Computed example of a mutant assay.
Amino acid sequence: MADFVSRGTVMTSNDIKKQGATVVGAFVRSQKLILELIAFGFALYLLQQSNVTAQTVVAMLLFCVFAFTLVTGKCVPHFRHRGKALLFLIVAGFFSLQGAVLFEEQREARWADLRESDPAAYLEELRDVDADRWFAELRKLDPDTHAVEAENRAVQAQADRLAECSDEKTALAYVMIQEDVRRSLHAPSTAEFPGRFGIGTRNMGNCIYQVVGHFDAQNGFGAMIRGTFTGTTEYFPEHGSWRTLTLDVQ
């Protein structure tokens, strides 16, 4: 058997044949993978042409399967190789995004036709998908119903706002007004407030609280004195903020 020398390494003819077989096998596997990817993409494309919704759902499910395989290395034996899973993941992801875009475009086109031919059906369908857009469209297509809906929303918003302004916020109102009390003192940093508000502190309704309390702080001569304060403060649930309306510090 003839021997071959390459870069100082002795290779037999059998070794060369094995290497050749390995190269050929790798080439065949790569071509097979390319054909599988083409077939996979073409199948999703055909499904997309017949039913965009079904294609999007299928592509998203396959995307999840390949993502799971890529992370864990466990799934259908044919796709356990992470490199192969990554390639199929990319194809599935592409068709998932494309399907979502096409679905949105088709729905918008159908809604445009329905808006002209049957506004009531258009509004009914839109309401279940996008309530804010439905409300805006309602103003143009059905002003009377829009006025009623706007009033109902305003009533509900006020009810929700008042529900946030419960008696439990009274203690917080006492804490929040203290900063404005400090600003009125000669030595704000010396002010000390008891842990409990005074008698008369209450929820006045409509998110307004009356606060009564006392404090100890230094006066202009450095002596500690006791003072009292009475004020009203308003709570804004929309931002979680407070605003002092009136304040009398003595």
Rank of each mutant, 00 (worst) to 15 (best):
I199M: 09
T201E: 03
E164I: 06
N203C: 07
C207Y: 11
I199N: 11
G205E: 00
F197Y: 15
I177M: 01
P188C: 12
E168I: 12
P119R: 12
L141V: 06
V211E: 00
R196T: 14
V175Y: 05
E149K: 02
L123V: 10
Q158N: 06
L141Q: 08
E124R: 07
E125G: 14
A159S: 09
A131R: 11
S166P: 04
P188T: 15
N206A: 15
R133N: 10
A157R: 07
A154K: 03
V129L: 09
T190V: 15
V181Y: 00
A150K: 07
N206K: 15
G200S: 08
A159P: 03
A121K: 13
E168H: 07
A159N: 10
N206E: 13
D130C: 02
Q178W: 00
V148I: 04
L138H: 04
F197Q: 10
E164N: 12
V129N: 04
D180F: 05
D167N: 13
M204H: 02
D180Y: 08
P194F: 11
A121F: 03
V181K: 00
R196K: 13
D216L: 15
P188V: 14
D128E: 15
A157L: 09
A191C: 10
F197P: 01
P194A: 03
P119H: 05
S184R: 13
Q218K: 13
R139S: 14
R182F: 02
A121H: 08
E179V: 12
D144W: 09
C207W: 08
G205K: 11
D167V: 14
A173M: 02
A120P: 11
S189W: 12
I177S: 00
E116A: 13
P188I: 14
A191V: 10
A147P: 01
C207P: 09
L123A: 13
A217Y: 06
A173F: 02
A154T: 12
D216M: 14
S189Y: 12
E149Y: 04
A131C: 02
E179D: 15
N203L: 10
N152C: 04
D128S: 13
R161L: 02
A121P: 05
L185I: 07
A157K: 04
L185Y: 02
V175L: 13
R133W: 09
P194W: 13
V148T: 04
E124K: 07
A171Q: 09
A121L: 13
E192C: 11
V148L: 05
R161N: 01
G200N: 11
C165K: 00
A187M: 15
E116K: 13
A154L: 06
R196N: 06
E164P: 00
E137G: 13
C207S: 07
P188A: 14
E149M: 05
P143W: 03
E168P: 01
L162A: 03
H186G: 04
H146I: 07
A191H: 08
T145H: 13
S184I: 08
L141G: 01
F215Q: 00
E137F: 08
D167E: 09
L138V: 06
A131D: 05
A131I: 06
R139I: 07
D128K: 11
V148R: 08
